[in-house]
């Protein structure tokens, strides 16, 4: 089963995603896409690694080209998150945009889908600010990022089995029928 979790920042997407993944049969992989920058993020990553090891998650790091990861059979993979992956694939170090990023990400995720039992993708609803408005003073590259991530979200949502929006930690089901084992989101 493929699951997309969307919503605004700090609405409990990651917590819920980890709860979902933990309810699945092993092996469970945490596919981390954040590009580590500086001491602060390295410390954060170390803390998260330890937390997830306690839950029996295996952590794999890919800041681009997630299709290079081949999990063991019957795996559940939690991809955290599409926002970072999109930024990493879309822009190079000079901030130049890659016109083929969206196609590449979609193909890579399709490859992952074919290799695992469950794929859980965490994304973000970055279009719900006013970043899409030229008059609002956001850079062209920010608007491009909003466009691309919006396209990726809609494309994945169309082909995934379950789509949830997290609001204040509460999952709102937008698409699909959850299995009976599906954990409740409310704390």
């Amino acid at each position: 089963m493929n699951i997309l979790l969307t919503g605004g920042s700090a609405n409990g997407k990651s917590t819920y995603a980890e709860k979902l993944a933990a309810a699945c049969a092993p092996p469970v992989y945490y596919l981390a896409t954040m590009r580590p920058y500086g001491e602060e993020s390295l410390a954060k990553i170390a803390r998260h690694l330890a937390m997830r090891a306690e839950r029996g998650f295996r952590t794999v790091e890919r800041d681009v080209r997630v299709a290079s990861f081949v999990p063991d059979a019957g795996a559940t993979v939690l991809l955290e998150c599409l926002c970072n992956l999109t930024a990493n694939e879309l822009f190079d170090n000079n901030g130049t945009a890659d016109a083929f990023a969206a196609e590449r990400i979609l193909a890579d995720i399709a490859a992952l889908e074919s290799r695992c039992e469950n794929l859980i993708v965490v994304t973000n609803d970055v279009g719900s600010g006013f970043a899409g408005i030229p008059a609002a003073g956001y850079s062209a590259s920010t608007r491009l990022y909003v466009e691309i991530l919006g396209l990726l979200n809609a494309t994945l949502a169309a082909r995934f089995d379950l789509v949830c929006e997290l609001v204040c930690g509460i999952p709102l089901l937008l698409k699909g029928t959850p299995p009976p084992s599906f954990p409740r989101g409310t704390p």
Binding site: D125, G127, S128, I133, R143, V146, I148, L149, G150, A154
Partner: peptide
């Protein structure tokens, strides 16, 4: 209604 690039035109 919806966020930018959410699929409103579609």
């Amino acid at each position: 209604v919806g966020g930018a690039a959410a699929g409103k035109r579609a």
